[in-house]
Simulated scan of single mutants.
Amino acid sequence: MRYWALVAVPTVLTAAFFYAASDNRHEVSAQDFVNLQQGNAIQPGFRRAHAKGFCVSGDFISSGTLAEYSSAQVFQAGQYPFIGRFSVAGNNPTAPDLKAPVRSLALTLLPETAEQWRTAMNTPPVLAVGTPEKFYQQLLALQNNTIAEFFAAHPETAAFRNWRASYQPTLSYATEQYHSINAFYLINAAGKQQAVRWAAVPTVGAANQLPDPEAVDALQQELFARLSDGPVIFDLVFSLATSADDENDATIIWPDTNPQLIAGQLQIKQATEQSNGQCNAINFDPLVLPRGILPSADPILRARGAAYAESHRRRAREVLLNTATGAHHE
């Protein structure tokens, strides 16, 4: 339960805000949050969350289905390059792949242009809590071994706990479904906005075996071997909010009956070790958005940028000081 709770929420920090502790109010900085995230075992040069991963690249084949909803170039029919990263949760870059209960897929589409779009997706479809303040309290509960009491005192964690109880990890990064979790707005040429969430949905069934299930890098090995037979493909599926949905609360799952549109396909064609890959230096901040996409007012989404920047700053400094090599995905 302790580890599951730790990965219940992606790193979500803001430059400075207040959290309730006893009867006092304390100011907490992004530095404080990253300190909690990395713990005492600092891995110089690596990301403070999702430290273990590898780089991928390929093309997004846009169907043009979302062109009426957004003026973003990437949603116009065509083929657009991306740089991405698969990773597992945790701050240990040498942890066994199969021990991590959460997996992630981060992407930077059109990386060399002003129309660049970054998205960081995770296997959970929802967050456990809905504000940065509560997330900080959750981390404190983890440190104090009171996470069960924390969950009991926060009924909004129910959707996440239900997902956790039913989720069965697959034997491949290629057969997982990855969620934006937070909501965003698509803005079309006329200025009309539509709240959405999205997911990278696998196009193949679950894997039956691993090349070496005892290997520390079992999932990475499987993906590299899979790519030797051809691209790994995901449908990029958008869920459109209705008037019944609150786009600013990421603790609530939207109904399956909401309109679903396939924006196109993500075709992963190459993979490389992260130390030598293009993804290594990228800060996968989900607030890096092109015209035609805007963030919702979700307080956790709004708070993530400062945390990503702080983690990126620390590892960049460590690399420059030659204290370590390698890196990861915010």
Rank of each mutant, 00 (worst) to 15 (best):
Y3F: 11
A5Y: 03
L6P: 01
P10C: 02
T14R: 10
A16W: 10
A16P: 08
A20S: 14
N24M: 12
V28T: 14
L36N: 09
A41L: 11
P44A: 14
R47D: 08
R48Y: 08
R48I: 07
A49N: 04
K52Y: 02
G53Q: 02
C55S: 12
V56Y: 00
G64T: 03
T65A: 11
L66C: 08
E68N: 04
V74F: 13
Q76I: 01
Y80G: 01
Y80S: 00
P81Q: 06
R85E: 06
F86S: 02
F86N: 06
T94P: 00
P96R: 13
D97W: 07
L98F: 09
P101H: 11
R103W: 04
A106M: 01
T108A: 14
L109S: 07
L110M: 15
P111Q: 06
E112G: 11
T113W: 06
N122P: 00
P124I: 05
V126A: 05
A128F: 07
T131Y: 13
N144T: 08
I147R: 03
A152R: 04
H154Q: 08
P155K: 15
F160Y: 15
N162W: 07
W163F: 08
W163V: 02
A165Y: 08
S166C: 08
S166G: 14
P169I: 07
S172T: 08
A174R: 03
Q177C: 02
N182G: 05
Y185H: 15
Y185E: 13
L186K: 01
A189L: 06
A190P: 11
G191M: 13
G191F: 13
K192V: 11
K192H: 10
Q194M: 10
Q194G: 00
V196S: 03
A199C: 00
T203D: 01
G205D: 09
N208A: 11
Q209I: 06
D212P: 01
P213F: 04
V216I: 14
D217M: 11
P231H: 13
V232Q: 04
F234R: 09
F238E: 02
D245K: 02
D246W: 08
T251Y: 09
I252E: 11
N258C: 12
Q260D: 06
G264L: 03
I268W: 00
K269S: 06
Q270H: 13
E273S: 09
S275P: 00
N276Y: 10
G277Q: 06
G277I: 02
Q278L: 02
C279D: 14
A281W: 10
I282Y: 01
I282W: 04
N283H: 00
S296P: 09
A297H: 05
D298T: 10
A307L: 10
E310F: 07
R313K: 15
R313S: 11
R315G: 04
A324W: 13
T325W: 10
G326K: 10
H328R: 12
H328S: 09
